[in-house]
Design a protein around this nucleic acid. Sequence first.
DNA 1: TTTAAATATGTCAATTTGGACATATACTCA
DNA 2: TGAGTATATGTCCAAATTGACATATTTAAA
Lengths: 109, 109
Amino acid sequence: MSADKLKRLRAAGWKVGSAEDFLQLSDEEARLVALKLSLISAVKKSRIKRKLSQTDLAQRMKSSQSRIAKIEAGDSSVSLDLIVRALIASGATTRDIQAAFTSKERMAA
Amino acid sequence: MSADKLKRLRAAGWKVGSAEDFLQLSDEEARLVALKLSLISAVKKSRIKRKLSQTDLAQRMKSSQSRIAKIEAGDSSVSLDLIVRALIASGATTRDIQAAFTSKERMAA
DNA sequence: TTTAAATATGTCAATTTGGACATATACTCA
DNA sequence: TGAGTATATGTCCAAATTGACATATTTAAA
């Protein structure tokens, strides 16, 4: 099916997408979610390791305690950017990031 | 980081008024920017390697060609989430992503 | 227990981000 | 050269994200 036709169908209100598209997207989405989860757990681990309260970390990165709580709770309103900012601000090294990513991704996959 | 790269960052809308200002950015911010740049270069590399046009990649991840162009141009309106989605959709392996997460700035665009 | 600190949850206005689109520029190749 | 394809840039508006705040719940120590 051509991109043009797809565009016209979508304009007409159809939810066009093949099963392949769906499966492909969910796999990619799953990989992104897995990555987020592993980084999230790294944030908490790093924060605790440095004996920082959520409020401490929030101040370091100019955010708020409730945001940090949401990061660690895996709230859907939290972006990957914020997670990585928190990870960096918590004192995690580049190696820490890689380590967390590697081990968790292996388990998720 | 080279003056040339700073120039490109500024042209792309990053908040880096001068080289001095940039050097005074917190270490956290600098690390996040470096990480994004690294992932961005991985996206383009992966896309080219698989012989995908920007339009192809856009369709795979249900985005638009202009978004892909902005990702690769390091536009400031592009989030880390989108960069990673593009990286995954481009067919990058877990190892590719891990490498990009870790490497500092080996491969420039 | 009581109290205080830490963490969790819900809401919301302001800001950021993203897809779509138009259009401009660049790159091939005949 | 010109046509076709790929990439870049600017804009718009809707959707997603965020800090801040109030408040609830949990945890820790006395």
